[in-house]
C-alpha cells in the first residue's frame, strides 16, 4: 500500500516569475502514488483467481489415458506417452533395409512366382526377400519374423525409415537383373519372398 504521507503536497507561489502561477512541491522524495496501481492489483488478483479456477477445472475434467494435469495446472502428456513418442521418433530415425538370403540349398515359399508355383528352389546365398524394419522385434525366432525357415538376415543399409524404404524399392525393382534371377528357367519380377513392390 502506498503511504498517505507521500501524497501530501502543498502549494506555494513560484519565485521564478511575477505571475501568480503555482508550483507543486512534494514533502519527501518517495514516488508519487498513482491511480493505476489499485487497478493493477485488481488485475493480478483476477489473473490469480483465473489460474486457480483453471487448475480446478482441469482437475475436474475427464482426461483420456495418456494425458495428465501437471503441477502448473496445464494439460500435458503422461510420462508413459512421452516415452512412447520418443521411442517412435527414435524408431523412425533408426531403420534398417535388409536382405533375407538362403542359408542352405532348398525349397522356399514363392509369392512372386506364377500362380501355380508355390515354392522355389534357392541355392545358399540367394536372395529370398528385401525388407525394411524399424521396430523392436518381440521374438528372435526367425520363422516368426522372416516368413520362412533357413534364412539369414543381412542388413544392407542403415538410415531413417524413409531412406530405407527408398533403398528397399530400388533393390526390389532391380532384382530381375541379378545373375541368380536371370539364370532360372522362369524370370520373376520380384524376389520370391516379396508379394508386393514394397
Amino acid at each position: 500500500m502506498f503511504s498517505l504521507k507521500s501524497s501530501a503536497r502543498k502549494l506555494e507561489p513560484s519565485n521564478h516569475s511575477s505571475s501568480s502561477t503555482l508550483r507543486i512541491i512534494s514533502e519527501d522524495n518517495s514516488p508519487r502514488p498513482s491511480g493505476w496501481l489499485p487497478i493493477l492489483l485488481l488485475i493480478l488478483i483476477a489473473l490469480g483467481s483465473l489460474h486457480v479456477g483453471r487448475k480446478y477445472y482441469m482437475s475436474q475434467k475427464d482426461l483420456p489415458p495418456g494425458l495428465v494435469v501437471n503441477p502448473e495446472g496445464d494439460m500435458a502428456l503422461s510420462s508413459k506417452r512421452e516415452a512412447k513418442l520418443a521411442k517412435e521418433l527414435e524408431e523412425i530415425d533408426n531403420a534398417v533395409q535388409y536382405a533375407l538370403v538362403a542359408t542352405k540349398d532348398g525349397v522356399y515359399p514363392c509369392y512372386a512366382c506364377p500362380s501355380a508355383q508355390k515354392v522355389i528352389f534357392l541355392y545358399k546365398g540367394n536372395v529370398w526377400k528385401y525388407g525394411v524394419t524399424r521396430k523392436e522385434e518381440s521374438e528372435r525366432y526367425p520363422n516368426g519374423n522372416y516368413g520362412a525357415e533357413n534364412l539369414l538376415f543381412l542388413p544392407l543399409f542403415w538410415g531413417t525409415y524413409g531412406e530405407c524404404l527408398k533403398q528397399e524399392k530400388i533393390m526390389i525393382y532391380n532384382y530381375p537383373f541379378l545373375p541368380e534371377a536371370k539364370e532360372r528357367d522362369i524370370i520373376i519380377l520380384r524376389p520370391p519372398g516379396n508379394k508386393y513392390d514394397s
Binding site: 515354392v119 526367425p142 544392407l156
Partner: peptide, 24 residues
C-alpha cells in the same frame, strides 16, 4: 521340390544370423 519340403519339416536345428552384409 516336395521331397525337399518334407525333409525341411523334420529339421530340428536352425542356425541363422543377423550379419552386416559385408561380413557375409
Amino acid at each position: 521340390l516336395l521331397t525337399l519340403e518334407a525333409q525341411a519339416k523334420d529339421q530340428q536345428i536352425f542356425i541363422s544370423g543377423r550379419i552386416w552384409h559385408e561380413l557375409y
